[in-house]
Amino acid sequence: MSVVSGEVRAVASASGPSGETLHKLSALLTLALLIAIFAFGNAAFLSVNNGLTVLLQTSVIGVLGIGMTMVIITGGIDLSVGSVLALSGTVTGMLVKAGMPVPAGMAAGVAVGALCGLANGLVITKMRITPFVATLGMMLIARGTALQLTGAAPISQLGEAFGRLGNGALFRLVEKQPNGLSKVIFPGIPYPAIVLLIVAVAAAFMLRRRALGRHLYATGSNEEASRLSGVNVDRTKIAAYVLSGALAGLAGNILMSRLVTAQPNEGVMYELDAIASAVIGGASLMGGVGTISGTMIGAFIIGVLRNGLNMAGVSAFIQQIIIGFVVILAVFVDQLRSRR
């Protein structure tokens, strides 16, 4: 945790460390408020099982959001993550279906994601195409490839091992009862949540303590200055897109594993949730600003909002409208803060 909160001090936002902390505090407060409201409305909201559900649902968006944060810090954007998620998961599914061991298949899926990210990075830095357009192209290319490879049909019956990452849990306690049924004493910590935690801590460490992290902030803050200071700006940007792509691949594997089915249609519009997480968490689309802890709070705000509204029986359409307002509000509050 100290690593995550350490970012705040070291890499101050445009309005300084106090402003950065303030934003994170207000986001955290919003999250607490949401939880309080939903808990008040429905006692089941605070149950362990529902908590785990939120954790599971948020882990995919959280992993995507972490990659997105790195890209946004450089002043870029990655619209392709939803499609890359689908392509990676699909490739993993096909390889596993063809007989490849699950870990190798998943590694290959993540590698496909990283390759898509590499392509994004090269198009942006070498062909000098803006990130918006380059990743919009990749969004179509990756989605089209996933659909073409599978004929748009889901790949099912992938076996128990394929489903373990998405459905398994650490420290799960199950007791055999005399009647032969098993009773879950403790549902355990879902693997996706553990993956999210590991990725978040690693990413926060990288941003805070490694030269690459420093260069990501510098590039987003002032690209020309970074170049003149001897920072390899192109390589820094490419690294951000490769990481974003690889994390999209990882998120794809978590999601498909949870469904125990490789779905080429999954992940549509996930990039927008990932961007929203980062922005609610205080990342600036102008570059130079953003933290992993902030993005995590943003991802959980979206996750809790979705889950709570679902439990309250609010339609998916209304949910979209509400999340739309939240994003605009979050950015507005952020601008008020930096304008003063």
Binding site: A10, V11, A12, S13, A14, R208, R209, R210, A211, G213, R214, H215, Y217, A218, G220, S221, N222, E224, A225, S226, L228, S229, G230, V231, G288, V289
Partner: peptide, 29 residues
């Protein structure tokens, strides 16, 4: 440079050592 070539969001040490960061034995900043 005339434009001062500083990364606005970073602090003074980060700017001073930008591109030539001092590292620990483990390669961390």
């Amino acid at each position: 440079y005339q434009t001062l070539a500083l990364a606005d969001h970073l602090d003074a040490p980060a700017n001073l050592f930008l591109g030539r960061e001092l590292r620990t034995r483990w390669g961390n900043l």
